[in-house]
Design a protein around this nucleic acid. Structure first.
Length: 576
RNA sequence: GCCCACAUAGCUCAGUAGGUAGAGCACGUUCUUGGUAAGAACGGGGUCACCAGUUCGAAUCUGGUUGUGGGCUCCA
């Protein structure tokens, strides 16, 4: 109850600060047209149409004006007026008029403070002087009512808290998030790059990023074989006709790369991996006895994403899905779904993601198949979730046109959400490609097809892992697990001996043999977030040992080589 | 795609009355061989993203292109 009341008060304050900002903008930009100004997580925004574009330099000026307004401490006055009065009041505010016309109530509520009156349900603070710590953070463009066909307004975002301390705490959390940004760490830790010369959204994996990827992919393969998947490889381009048959050309044309002509035939870069898998399935007659068949592929796909949506590794134009397609009988669907969900949970746990949200998306307005098919499949997905006692939320109408799905959103250490694994039942492709099997009765039956990824895409996964761990990857994923630091040049030979021995047992180790001081080498290994530093000098050489330092800064002192080796191997095997 | 901002050495960034460029780190050479987060000196390195325009003269002003960032819309 206490926190609820507190939240309500905070919401009220944030909303009032939005009004105060609007008043400040009104006085600084005469003729401003006002959109809406709601509260959001941590703060608020307000949308305006102004005579000129705002720049970041405008924010402190607006903040100063807001402080003046707060100092004047005008009361927030609630008033109820008729629709006609409202139309008169907002006669020069086209966006407000639009809102007035949409509210069905007979009388409308307005709030007035100082010289500013806004159409607003409230509630608000008693007076402007109750506003507390706030800061305007950034300006951005935003379509009126989120519709890209309507005018773009200028939005000012701000944050507001009950106290200066809370505001500063929030700002420092933001700063920590910026430090963990995978785009920044990707450069610092030498994981990946994108190049103007190659094209936006197309990723080059550097050796260290590639190590992480390779380890995860190897792990993925082993786990899939163990769970009855067959691994396949299929081409990255295919004739355009195939994509017409599948419906991709019709439904996703805006997201496809233009076809290319080869020997008078049009070919297209693949946006999905399914079709190759379907053709493998169809390469011979399938009996009900041989189902389910599970074809898995780390399949690279290319999708044309609009430039404005690209984001580091998390939203790209070429990416590798850990894809698989399960072909099964209707009576096998539920069991398969449970198997996939188990695999998802296992992968998430192995990668260190403890927080995730599960969403079940149901039938949209436009759909393939019959309502009954959707009903049954949705029930199957539900039962599978319930068998694993997984809490989930239903996203009504958010399914893809070809079938219902389960999406898993991961939450990283900073609370960012990432769309990861997805499990989709498909009613479209089996029909279009006549994907069937011979049943017990000797006749053809349409197979059920399940698309699924358990990691999502390798690119997005690396983004997510990097931010989750802040670049300090667990030992099993660390590109370099240990750096051996000889104190003086005469210790390099000993360091290399250790490195050879460790390497032969699968430990990723480097010798920092530069003629630099130990302090520098420690600092750099630390900045590289290498889990173990083995410092070796005269003492260690004489006792077949190394002095062990962890990236946490902890100095574990002298330890026998066998123990060090064992310690690293145990940590790697535990995936810790 | 849309709105706004930004683009200077490999990296992080200085460089506002327009007069052909700087620092730190990194890199190279040399000296130093040092016990738990940066030893020192010297040196190499930039057609100031690209293309036009204004100007006697453009990193600096204008327009366009490309890319990046913050958002909006979108994300099979």
């Amino acid at each position: 109850m206490m926190t609820e009341a507190k939240n309500e008060q905070l919401e009220r304050m944030r909303h009032s600060v939005a009004h105060i900002m609007a008043e400040a903008v009104q006085s600084l930009f005469p003729g401003a047209k006002f959109g809406i100004g709601p509260t959001i997580e941590h703060g608020f925004y307000y949308d305006f149409e102004l005579s000129r574009a705002l720049t970041p330099d405008d924010l402190p000026v607006i903040e100063d004006k807001m402080r003046e307004i707060i100092a004047q401490d005008a009361s927030f006055v609630r008033d109820e007026i008729s629709r006609d009065e409202a139309r008169t009041l907002f006669s020069d505010q086209p966006y407000k008029l639009e809102l007035v016309d949409e509210i069905p109530d007979a009388s409308l509520v307005v709030y007035k403070q100082g010289s500013f009156t806004d159409l607003c349900r409230g509630p608000h603070l008693a007076s402007a002087g109750e506003a507390r710590a706030f800061k305007l953070t950034h300006v951005a463009g935003a379509y009126w009512r989120g519709d890209e066909k309507r005018p773009m307004l200028q939005r000012i975002y701000g944050v507001a808290f009950e106290s200066q301390e809370e505001l500063e705490e929030h700002l420092s959390r933001q700063a920590e998030a910026a430090r963990r940004d995978h785009r920044k760490l990707g450069k610092e830790l030498d994981l990946f790059s994108v190049h103007e010369e190659i094209g936006p959204g197309l990723i080059c994996w550097h050796p260290k990023g590639a190590v992480i990827r390779e380890i995860i992919e190897d792990f993925w393969r082993v786990e899939h074989r163990r769970r009855g998947y067959d691994i396949v490889y299929t081409p990255h381009i295919a004739k355009l006709d195939l994509w017409k048959t599948s419906g991709h050309w019709e439904f996703y044309r805006d997201y496809l790369y233009s076809p290319m002509e080869i020997e008078g035939q049009e070919y297209m870069l693949r946006p999905m991996n399914c079709l190759g898998h379907i053709l493998i399935y169809k390469s011979r007659l399938r009996s009900y006895r041989s189902l389910p068949l599970r074809y898995a592929e780390l399949g690279t796909v290319y999708r044309y994403e609009r430039t404005g949506v690209l984001y580091g590794l998390a939203r790209v134009r070429g990416f590798t899905q850990d894809d698989a397609h399960i072909f099964c009988r209707p009576d096998q669907v539920e069991g398969e779904l449970v198997g996939v969900l188990n695999l998802v949970l296992f992968m998430m746990a192995s990668l260190g993601f403890k927080e995730y949200k599960v969403f079940l998306s149901t039938r949209p307005d436009k759909y393939a198949g019959t309502a009954q098919m959707w009903e049954e499949a949705t029930e199957c997905l539900k039962r599978a979730l319930e068998r694993l006692t997984l809490p989930y939320a239903v996203d009504p109408g958010e399914g893809v046109f070809y079938g219902p799905k389960i999406d898993v959103k991961l939450e990283d250490a900073l609370g960012h959400e990432w769309q990861g694994p997805t499990i989709q039942v498909d009613f479209n492709l089996p029909q279009r490609f006549d994907v069937c099997y011979i049943g017990e009765d000797g006749s053809d039956h349409t197979a059920v097809m399940i698309h699924r990824t358990v990691l999502g895409a390798m690119e997005r996964l690396l983004a997510c892992l990097t931010e989750h761990y802040g670049g300090a990857f667990p030992v099993w994923l660390s590109p370099v697990q240990a750096v051996i630091i000889p104190i003086a040049d005469r210790h390099v030979g000993y360091a290399q001996e250790i490195a050879g021995e460790f390497r032969s047992e699968g430990i990723r180790v480097l010798v920092d043999d530069r003629s630099e001081r130990m302090n520098l080498k420690i600092r750099e290994a630390q900045l590289d977030k290498v889990p173990y530093m083995l410092i070796v000098g005269d003492k260690e050489m004489g006792s077949a040992s190394a002095s062990l330092r962890l990236r946490s800064g902890e100095d574990l002192g002298l330890e026998g080589l066998a123990d060090v080796k064992n310690r690293i191997k145990v940590a790697a095997e535990a995936r810790a």
